[in-house]
Amino acid sequence: MIELTNDPIDPTSLLQQVASHQAGAVVLFLGTTREFTGSRQTESLDYECYPEMAEKKLNELECEARDRWSIVDCAIVHRLGQLGLGEASVAIAVSSAHRKNAFQAGQWLIDTLKEVVPIWKKENWADGTTDWVHPGLTNEE
């Protein structure tokens, strides 16, 4: 299951979505809004995406994870819009019979999501300035 949403992410409902009697392990990853990047203070983040392609890429990631690892279920949710400090921007839940597959698939999913899915964050700094984050181009994450 993949989802792009403007609403706050509810990790509990995500865990319920991947729950199964076949699973002996459930791994949940949350990406959250951090206050400091080096010495720069963040007030909030704005996320935008290219919806059609982001959904397509997220579906491809889910399919590839299911091909590569023996997992029971998998759910990926990415938040869009403005997020305050501490809020979750992304959540990935993976269930599997044994923990190793859930850990490995979860790690691969978040790493690959950050490389290929067309979603962008803008830093709204505490000093009132803003920057789009583009790894390798502008400020590093």
Partner: peptide
């Protein structure tokens, strides 16, 4: 063609 410019992505 549906064409888009994709600057380096920064989701997550």
């Amino acid at each position: 063609s549906e064409v888009a410019c994709i600057p380096p992505v920064s989701g997550g």
